[in-house]
Design a protein around this nucleic acid. Sequence first.
DNA 1: GAAGTTGTGTACGATAACGCACATAATCCG
DNA 2: CGGATTATGTGCGTTATCGTACACAACTTC
Lengths: 239, 239
Amino acid sequence: MTAAHDPRQNYLLAALPAGDLERVSKSLKLVELPLGEALYESGSRQPAVYFPTTAIVSLLYTLADGSSVEIAVVGNEGVVGVSLFMGGETTPSRAVVQSAGYAYRWFGKFLKEEFMLGGPMQHLLLRYTQALLTQMAQTAVCNRHHSVDQQLCRWLLLSLDRLVGNELVMTQELIANMLGVRREGVTEAAGNLQSAGLIKYSRGRIKVLDRAGLEARTCECYAVVKKEFDRLLPAMTQY
Amino acid sequence: MTAAHDPRQNYLLAALPAGDLERVSKSLKLVELPLGEALYESGSRQPAVYFPTTAIVSLLYTLADGSSVEIAVVGNEGVVGVSLFMGGETTPSRAVVQSAGYAYRWFGKFLKEEFMLGGPMQHLLLRYTQALLTQMAQTAVCNRHHSVDQQLCRWLLLSLDRLVGNELVMTQELIANMLGVRREGVTEAAGNLQSAGLIKYSRGRIKVLDRAGLEARTCECYAVVKKEFDRLLPAMTQY
DNA sequence: GAAGTTGTGTACGATAACGCACATAATCCG
DNA sequence: CGGATTATGTGCGTTATCGTACACAACTTC
């Protein structure tokens, strides 16, 4: 537990006025999120929300036949578990750690107390939820209209925005699960990007060589989501 | 303006305690929503929210190439314009009247005043927004994994739930826009349903003959969304 | 009731993604 | 070091949906 960890690594927390942050920090607990851990399952009661700092969390929907799709991704720009303050307590989605790292856990009791004050924290959480709504909607659109190639670019960029560095640890199999496509489809799409010199793939490690190239190749969906996050959460210059 | 119109025709408003409803009603204005009217456009400032009573409104995302997809549908179970109280003021989506009817308009000034009280109205609006989130996420999943036939069933059922009667006025062309597929694809899917005796199609009028049959034929997505609405908004027995 | 408009049915080749079956390659581990 | 495991690459035939073109049917208008 070194000085390297600070709640302000999460941009929602960082956007709080000093006094609010100090109060809130008392009930925050730093936790380590290992790759693959499920923060909550579909329909299960969520005791706490998580403010990621270095971790990335995917929100997934799983179908009866076992196939799944990522509907949103949350990193240090947001919070996992919006249903806790929206009032539903549970959601039909799962939250799985896509990239290991840290997050601050905040139990529902404290969250609800703070939320009911109607102050900056409430305001931030609601604005973030609206940004999340946009991300989900744009994902729906993208699923319908764009090629696996484009979606892979979008996914890489969204992940990259939430990481330090330019390398992500992720097998093609897992990416396929996120995008809701075949593993072979990802192999092919990744091969295309590699041939174009945009990424370097090697057994679960993807190094992004040409970020601008990815942006040029992806569909508009990435830009729409990014723009909306910037608009709604302007204090956050993580991108 | 006969006694036939009452704010309680909208289930969110109906779920308010009598005192709250009375206060809120003072600033509600009944408006007629003609087919095709846009309640707001992508990125435009929304001055008011709408609580539909007999109207149905589609939330659409439009892509740069002009193609569009419906990401959610709102009827008398909900409210159009959640970004007004979520804090964003605008969204990248459009809201278009899919079925003509009435709604109660509530201007942002009044909405925000009431919302800040933190009472039942805030609570209801947030729970509804969570239900909307689920609908959008499930739409994303459905777009990825299910056939046009199944999606048409889902769409018909969602519309039917928000209407009185068993007939909807809607051309195949418009349905195709909602689902983000070709018009011919809808023709084919509708033909299948008609052959199976589930619906009767005639030039922009669809009569549902066998609702149970549609439910049997659609994917799980319909049931997931319905169940979540029932759970989050239990006072509302519109289905 | 003739002409125009709008909505629906049908056909057919093109294409993107699928499901499946393997081959190969990198890494792990006893 | 050698065998097992995991990750990736490749090659099929199959399928759903697409894009395009056009025929026809029903309602509208004058």
